[in-house]
Design a protein around this nucleic acid. Structure first.
Lengths: 334, 334
DNA sequence: TTGAAAGCGCTAACAG
DNA sequence: CTGTTAGCGCTTTCAA
C-alpha cells in the first residue's frame, strides 16, 4: 500500500494537519517538527494522493492535446513545445492521437471530461460544430493550434498561411518560373487548405500569371496521395517547371514521383514544400520549404490555454507567429 | 460548476446510491428509476468525478509511456499501438517524451507517481539502475518495449535484434557484396547497439568475411550524425560497396552523404536500413530495410503491462516479435 | 503553532 | 430494489 498522510503523521508523531502544512506552507511549521515530517516523507517516499487533492482543488493540473496524426512529424514539434510549457507551468499533458476519426476524437473528449483535464489544445484540424459543442457542453476550456475558427470565437495560435503560401510562390516566380502548379489540401476537411490556395493565387495574380491558377491537384495528408496527385498534375500539365506543395510530405511524394518518371529535381522541376519538418533537411534533394515554428506554436498554445484556464479569458484571441522561407536544394533558377 | 451525483439524484428524485448504481450496475435498478436517472445524466452531462472514484478504487485507469524522442518516427507506431490497446482495455495514456534527458525522465516518474498511474511502459532505452530503483521505490509496475534488461528481471517485448541484423547483412552478402560496412549505435547508451553489432559479425563470419568486422562507425540517433559517420566510414574504407545501417534515419543520412559525394545509391553502394519507418518507402531511393512491427510492439506492451497490473505477474517475461526484411530500391546486386 | 473535525464526490456495506 | 451512512486521503476552517 502507498503511504498516506496518516502514516507520515504517525511516524513523525504529529497530526495530519501538520503534515499537510509542511507539504503546502512549510514556513508555518516550527523547524523541529518540519524536519521530522520531511524525514518521514523521505523514508516512506510519500507523495500526496492527487485524487484527494483533486477532489478539493477541483483541478487536475493536467492538459489535454488532440492531434490528428502522430505519424506526421509536424506534430512532434508542437508536442515538444507544449510539453516544455507544461513542465514550466506545473501541468501534466495527455496526448491523444485521433487518426482523424470523428468518433475517436469525440470519445477522447469524454475521456478528458471524465479525467477532469483543466483544458485542451486542439491541433491543426477543422473545429466542427460537434466538437465545439461537446467541448463547451463539458465546460472544458480550449484553444486551437495551427487552426482557427471563423464560426466560433475560440482563441488560437497559428501562422499566416495565406502569406506563407504567397511567399513560397513568389519565390518560385522570382527565380524565373512561369509554369507553376500546386498540390494542395482538400478544402472541405482542412483548415489551411483555403488560405494557402489563396496565397498561391495572389502571388500568381500579382505577377500576371493567373493562367496558372487552375494547375492544382489535391491530396489527403500522406505522401502516397501526393505521389498520385503529382501524377495527375503532370499528366494534365506536362509543361510545369515548378510546383508548390502545401506540406513537406507532399513535396517528398512529388519528388519521389518525378524521380520515378525520370524527371530531375531541381534540374527540370523545382519543388517547394511547407512545414520544414525535421526530415526536410535530409531528403534527397534537401527541401526548399516554408518553415513553421512548430515548437513555439505548441509552447504558446499551452501558455494561452493556461491563461484561459486561470483567468477565464485571453488577451489576444487570434495570435499569429512568423513563418520563414528556407531555400535548400529542391528549387533552382529557371 | 460541474454537476455532482447529488444534482442528478435530486433531478431524478432518487437517492445518490441509486444514481451510483445506474452508473455501475444498471441492471440492479428498476427501469422506471433508471430511465429518470439516465435522463438527468444526459441533461446535466453528468460524468462521475474520477478523483472521487480514484480515491475509492485506488486506481487511475491511466498508463504512462516514456519515450526517448518523439521526433523519431519509430515511436509513432509504438504510440499508436499502445493507444489502441489502451482504448480496448479502458485505460487512458500519458505520453512523456524524455528527449533522452535523465533528469527529465526521473521527474516524469515522479509525475506518474503523483498522478498515480497504474503502470508504465518504458520504451527503447537502457534501463539504468536509477530508473529501475525509482520505479520500484514508487511501487509502479512497468514493462519495457524495444528494450530489455540483463541486470533486472523486467518483463519486455522486443524483436530479436541480433537475428534481424544478421538477416540484413546476410542479404547483402547473398546479393554479392564482399566489402561491407556498418553504421551502428554507440554501445554504452543504446540497448540494441550490441546485438545488432553481433548479428553483423555473425553474418560476416559465417561467410568468411571477418575482415569486414571492423568497418564500423558509430552515430547518435539523428541523421546528421549518420551523415558524419558515413563520411568517416568512407574516408577510412573507400572500397565499401554496401553499408548496413542500424536505423532508417542512419540509412537516409548515409545516402544523403553519398549523394553529396556523387556516389550513386544503389548504383555504386547498397544501403540497408532498420525499422521501416513510414518515410522509408518515400525516400529517394526507397529504402531496403528491416521492418519492425512497431504498432504490434506497442499494443503488446500495453497488454502485457495490463496483465502485470491486474494479476501482479506476467506469463512470459521476455517476449519476442518477428522482424522482416523488406527489399526496395536502395540495394542492388553486385 | 497546532490539532480536531468537516467535507470534497463517490462507492459499498448495511438495513429496510 | 432502495436509502442511509461510513469512509477513501487530503485541505482548511476553527479553536485552543
Amino acid at each position: 500500500m502507498k503511504p498516506t498522510i496518516r502514516d507520515v503523521a504517525k511516524m513523525a508523531d504529529v497530526s495530519i494537519s501538520t503534515v499537510s502544512r509542511v507539504m503546502n506552507t512549510p514556513e508555518s511549521v516550527v523547524e523541529s517538527k518540519r524536519i521530522r515530517v520531511l524525514e518521514a516523507v523521505e523514508k516512506l517516499k510519500y507523495q500526496p494522493n492527487s485524487f484527494a487533492r483533486g477532489l478539493i482543488y477541483k483541478k487536475s493540473f493536467t492538459l489535454g492535446l488532440l492531434i490528428p496524426d502522430i505519424e506526421n512529424l509536424y506534430f512532434a514539434g508542437v508536442i515538444r513545445g507544449m510539453q516544455d510549457a507544461c513542465i514550466k507551468l506545473g501541468y501534466s499533458l495527455m496526448i491523444c492521437n485521433t487518426d482523424r476519426d470523428k468518433n475517436r476524437l469525440l470519445s477522447y473528449i469524454d475521456n478528458f471530461h471524465e479525467k477532469q483535464v483543466d483544458g485542451v489544445v486542439f491541433a491543426s484540424d477543422v473545429l466542427y460544430p460537434e466538437y465545439y459543442e461537446k467541448l463547451v457542453g463539458c465546460r472544458i476550456p480550449f484553444v486551437l493550434v495551427s487552426s482557427h475558427s471563423d464560426e466560433f470565437d475560440v482563441p488560437c495560435v497559428e501562422i499566416d498561411d495565406e502569406a506563407a503560401a504567397y511567399d513560397a510562390v513568389k519565390f518560385l516566380i522570382e527565380i524565373g518560373h512561369q509554369e507553376i502548379g500546386m498540390i494542395g489540401f482538400n478544402h472541405n476537411d482542412s483548415i489551411s487548405g483555403p488560405p494557402r490556395y489563396q496565397g498561391f493565387v495572389r502571388a500568381l495574380t500579382e505577377f500576371g500569371l493567373e493562367r496558372n491558377s487552375c494547375n492544382i491537384k489535391y491530396a489527403a495528408h500522406r505522401f502516397e496521395h501526393a505521389y498520385q496527385a503529382a501524377h495527375e498534375l503532370f499528366t494534365d500539365y506536362p509543361e510545369l517547371t515548378a510546383v508548390f506543395c502545401v506540406a513537406d510530405e507532399f513535396a517528398m511524394g512529388t519528388i519521389s514521383y518525378l524521380k520515378d518518371r525520370g524527371i530531375l529535381v531541381p534540374g527540370q522541376v523545382s519543388v517547394v514544400g511547407f512545414d520544414n519538418i525535421r526530415m526536410a533537411g535530409m531528403f534527397v534533394p534537401k527541401l526548399t520549404t516554408i518553415a513553421q515554428p512548430t515548437y513555439e506554436l505548441g509552447y504558446r498554445a499551452a501558455e494561452k490555454l493556461h491563461e484561459l484556464v486561470t483567468t477565464g479569458t485571453v488577451e489576444i484571441v487570434r495570435e499569429r507567429m512568423n513563418h520563414k522561407l528556407i531555400v535548400r536544394e529542391s528549387s533552382r533558377e529557371k
